[in-house]
Amino acid sequence: MAASAHGSVWGPLRLGIPGLCCRRPPLGLYARMRRLPGPEVSGRSVAAASGPGAWGTDHYCLELLRKRDYEGYLCSLLLPAESRSSVFALRAFNVELAQVKDSVSEKTIGLMRMQFWKKTVEDIYCDNPPHQPVAIELWKAVKRHNLTKRWLMKIVDEREKNLDDKAYRNIKELENYAENTQSSLLYLTLEILGIKDLHADHAASHIGKAQGIVTCLRATPYHGSRRKVFLPMDICMLHGVSQEDFLRRNQDKNVRDVIYDIASQAHLHLKHARSFHKTVPVKAFPAFLQTVSLEDFLKKIQRVDFDIFHPSLQQKNTLLPLYLYIQSWRKTY
Results as ranks from 00 to 15, higher is better:
residue 161 K to A: 13
residue 276 F to V: 08
residue 189 T to K: 06
residue 283 K to F: 07
residue 193 L to Q: 04
residue 241 V to T: 09
residue 320 L to P: 00
residue 224 G to R: 13
residue 204 A to M: 03
residue 170 N to L: 03
residue 123 D to V: 00
residue 49 A to I: 15
residue 93 F to C: 02
residue 227 R to G: 10
residue 183 S to A: 11
residue 282 V to F: 08
residue 236 C to W: 03
residue 209 K to E: 02
residue 150 R to E: 05
residue 194 G to S: 07
residue 154 K to G: 07
residue 51 G to F: 09
residue 231 L to A: 04
residue 59 H to E: 11
residue 207 I to F: 03
residue 198 L to W: 06
residue 66 R to S: 06
residue 271 K to N: 12
residue 104 V to P: 07
residue 102 D to N: 07
residue 111 L to M: 08
residue 306 F to D: 01
residue 118 K to H: 09
residue 140 K to H: 08
residue 212 G to L: 00
residue 87 V to D: 03
residue 259 I to V: 14
residue 51 G to E: 06
residue 143 K to C: 10
residue 138 L to G: 02
residue 272 H to R: 08
residue 231 L to N: 01
residue 186 L to M: 10
residue 157 D to T: 14
residue 106 E to T: 09
residue 197 D to T: 07
residue 200 A to Q: 01
residue 256 R to E: 02
residue 209 K to N: 03
residue 123 D to H: 08
residue 117 W to K: 00
residue 71 E to S: 07
residue 209 K to C: 05
residue 72 G to H: 12
residue 299 K to C: 13
residue 167 A to P: 15
residue 282 V to E: 08
residue 252 D to E: 14
residue 216 C to L: 14
residue 214 V to N: 00
residue 209 K to L: 05
residue 187 Y to F: 10
residue 217 L to Y: 02
residue 196 K to V: 06
residue 212 G to P: 01
residue 192 I to H: 01
residue 171 I to M: 13
residue 176 N to C: 12
residue 292 V to S: 10
residue 162 N to T: 06
residue 136 I to M: 12
residue 176 N to H: 13
residue 202 H to D: 04
residue 290 Q to T: 09
residue 212 G to Y: 01
residue 205 S to A: 08
residue 136 I to T: 11
residue 264 S to W: 06
residue 74 L to T: 04
residue 255 V to H: 09
residue 159 R to E: 04
residue 48 A to V: 09
residue 68 R to H: 10
residue 271 K to F: 09
residue 85 S to V: 13
residue 61 C to T: 15
residue 181 T to A: 12
residue 104 V to F: 09
residue 231 L to F: 05
residue 272 H to G: 07
residue 294 L to Q: 11
residue 283 K to I: 11
residue 189 T to Q: 14
residue 274 R to E: 03
residue 307 D to K: 02
residue 263 A to S: 13
residue 325 Y to T: 12
residue 225 S to M: 14
residue 104 V to R: 10
residue 225 S to N: 08
residue 48 A to I: 15
residue 137 E to S: 09
residue 83 S to L: 11
residue 299 K to Q: 10
residue 203 A to L: 03
residue 307 D to V: 02
residue 329 W to C: 10
residue 135 A to H: 01
residue 171 I to L: 15
residue 310 H to F: 01
residue 327 Q to K: 06
residue 85 S to F: 09
residue 126 C to E: 14
residue 285 F to K: 13
residue 327 Q to D: 03
residue 190 L to Q: 02
residue 137 E to H: 06
residue 186 L to R: 03
residue 254 N to T: 12
residue 260 Y to T: 05
residue 222 Y to V: 12
residue 83 S to H: 14
residue 142 V to H: 07
residue 109 I to H: 10
residue 314 Q to M: 10
residue 296 D to C: 08
residue 147 L to P: 02
residue 174 L to M: 08
residue 227 R to C: 11
residue 55 W to A: 10
residue 131 H to F: 15
residue 250 N to L: 14
residue 286 P to E: 04
residue 221 P to Y: 09
residue 251 Q to G: 15
residue 98 A to C: 13
residue 174 L to Q: 04
residue 138 L to F: 01
residue 188 L to A: 10
residue 188 L to Q: 02
residue 167 A to R: 05
residue 215 T to C: 12
residue 272 H to N: 15
residue 80 P to V: 02
residue 179 E to I: 03
residue 297 F to V: 05
residue 258 V to N: 03
residue 286 P to W: 11
residue 90 L to M: 06
residue 115 Q to H: 10
residue 51 G to D: 13
residue 89 A to K: 01
residue 244 E to M: 05
residue 218 R to K: 15
residue 261 D to Q: 11
residue 243 Q to G: 06
residue 174 L to C: 01
residue 72 G to R: 04
residue 299 K to P: 00
residue 66 R to P: 01
residue 227 R to M: 10
residue 177 Y to W: 06
residue 112 M to W: 13
residue 182 Q to N: 14
residue 207 I to C: 04
residue 148 T to A: 09
residue 98 A to G: 10
residue 253 K to T: 14
residue 272 H to A: 08
residue 157 D to C: 14
residue 147 L to R: 01
residue 220 T to S: 14
residue 240 G to E: 08
residue 225 S to E: 12
residue 79 L to W: 14
residue 115 Q to N: 14
residue 305 D to T: 03
residue 50 S to T: 15
residue 307 D to Q: 06
residue 180 N to Y: 10
residue 317 N to P: 12
residue 249 R to E: 12
residue 119 K to L: 04
residue 278 K to N: 08
residue 114 M to V: 11
residue 300 K to C: 13
residue 312 S to D: 13
residue 253 K to W: 13
residue 310 H to D: 12
residue 215 T to F: 06
residue 71 E to C: 10
residue 259 I to Y: 00
residue 104 V to I: 12
residue 311 P to L: 08
residue 222 Y to D: 05
residue 211 Q to P: 00
residue 86 S to V: 02
residue 165 D to H: 10
residue 180 N to V: 06
residue 105 S to W: 14
residue 118 K to W: 04
residue 171 I to W: 07
residue 109 I to A: 14
residue 168 Y to R: 03
residue 136 I to N: 08
residue 204 A to Y: 01
residue 94 N to I: 03
residue 259 I to R: 06
residue 204 A to G: 06
residue 150 R to N: 07
residue 63 E to G: 15
residue 153 M to W: 11
residue 176 N to T: 15
residue 221 P to A: 11
residue 178 A to F: 02
residue 59 H to W: 09
residue 215 T to V: 09
residue 179 E to G: 00
residue 52 P to F: 12
residue 135 A to L: 02
residue 207 I to P: 00
residue 158 E to A: 12
residue 78 L to W: 04
residue 152 L to N: 00
residue 65 L to P: 01
residue 126 C to S: 15
residue 151 W to S: 05
residue 154 K to M: 07
residue 118 K to S: 07
residue 269 H to W: 02
residue 284 A to G: 08
residue 281 P to D: 08
residue 232 P to M: 00
residue 101 K to Y: 14
residue 280 V to S: 02
residue 251 Q to A: 15
residue 88 F to E: 03
residue 187 Y to P: 00
residue 206 H to W: 03
residue 246 F to R: 02
residue 92 A to R: 03
residue 193 L to D: 01
residue 99 Q to P: 04
residue 154 K to Y: 05
residue 77 L to K: 03
residue 70 Y to V: 07
residue 179 E to N: 04
residue 211 Q to Y: 15
residue 109 I to L: 10
residue 287 A to D: 02
residue 326 I to R: 09
residue 284 A to I: 02
residue 323 Y to G: 11
residue 112 M to H: 14
residue 241 V to H: 02
residue 102 D to L: 06
residue 141 A to V: 08
residue 253 K to N: 11
residue 232 P to D: 01
residue 285 F to V: 13
residue 96 E to K: 10
residue 259 I to C: 12
residue 299 K to Y: 10
residue 73 Y to T: 03
residue 213 I to L: 12
residue 132 Q to S: 14
residue 47 A to T: 14
residue 197 D to I: 01
residue 285 F to R: 11
residue 326 I to H: 06
residue 92 A to Q: 00
residue 260 Y to E: 06
residue 151 W to G: 04
residue 303 R to Y: 07
residue 173 E to D: 09
residue 78 L to G: 06
residue 124 I to F: 04
residue 190 L to K: 01
residue 123 D to G: 08
residue 54 A to G: 09
residue 190 L to I: 04
residue 164 D to W: 13
residue 265 Q to A: 09
residue 94 N to F: 05
residue 78 L to S: 06
residue 193 L to P: 00
residue 258 V to H: 00
residue 165 D to C: 12
residue 145 H to S: 08
residue 230 F to H: 14
residue 247 L to P: 03
residue 127 D to A: 07
residue 164 D to Y: 15
residue 87 V to E: 03
residue 75 C to H: 14
residue 301 I to E: 01
residue 131 H to C: 12
residue 173 E to W: 03
residue 135 A to D: 06
residue 296 D to N: 06
residue 268 L to H: 10
residue 54 A to L: 12
residue 293 S to N: 10
residue 119 K to Y: 04
residue 267 H to Q: 06
residue 135 A to F: 04
residue 253 K to Q: 15
residue 55 W to I: 15
residue 68 R to I: 06
residue 313 L to A: 04
residue 102 D to H: 05
residue 98 A to W: 04
residue 210 A to H: 00
residue 275 S to I: 06
residue 45 S to H: 15
residue 126 C to Y: 15
residue 258 V to G: 02
residue 179 E to S: 03
residue 96 E to R: 05
residue 289 L to K: 04
residue 330 R to F: 08
residue 109 I to W: 07
residue 45 S to L: 07
residue 51 G to W: 09
residue 300 K to R: 14
residue 172 K to D: 12
residue 224 G to L: 14
residue 186 L to F: 11
residue 214 V to H: 03
residue 255 V to L: 13
residue 80 P to N: 10
residue 282 V to S: 12
residue 92 A to H: 03
residue 320 L to H: 05
residue 89 A to S: 07
residue 332 T to K: 12
residue 62 L to C: 12
residue 69 D to A: 01
residue 308 I to S: 02
residue 191 E to T: 03
residue 125 Y to A: 04
residue 115 Q to A: 13
residue 153 M to V: 12
residue 134 V to H: 03
residue 163 L to R: 04
residue 83 S to P: 12
residue 222 Y to S: 07
residue 283 K to H: 12
residue 299 K to E: 09
residue 133 P to A: 15
residue 321 P to S: 08
residue 81 A to G: 13
residue 165 D to I: 14
residue 293 S to R: 04
residue 63 E to F: 06
residue 254 N to W: 05
residue 310 H to R: 00
residue 212 G to K: 00
residue 137 E to C: 07
residue 126 C to D: 15
residue 242 S to G: 06
residue 208 G to E: 01
residue 217 L to P: 01
residue 161 K to M: 10
residue 327 Q to H: 07
residue 162 N to M: 10
residue 206 H to S: 04
residue 167 A to F: 14
residue 91 R to G: 07
residue 56 G to N: 15
residue 308 I to K: 03
residue 212 G to H: 03
residue 292 V to D: 01
residue 90 L to Y: 00
residue 56 G to A: 15
residue 81 A to E: 14
residue 265 Q to Y: 12
residue 310 H to P: 03
residue 251 Q to L: 15
residue 292 V to M: 11
residue 231 L to G: 01
residue 93 F to L: 09
residue 273 A to E: 00
residue 176 N to S: 13
residue 247 L to Y: 04
residue 115 Q to Y: 06
residue 61 C to W: 06
residue 249 R to P: 07
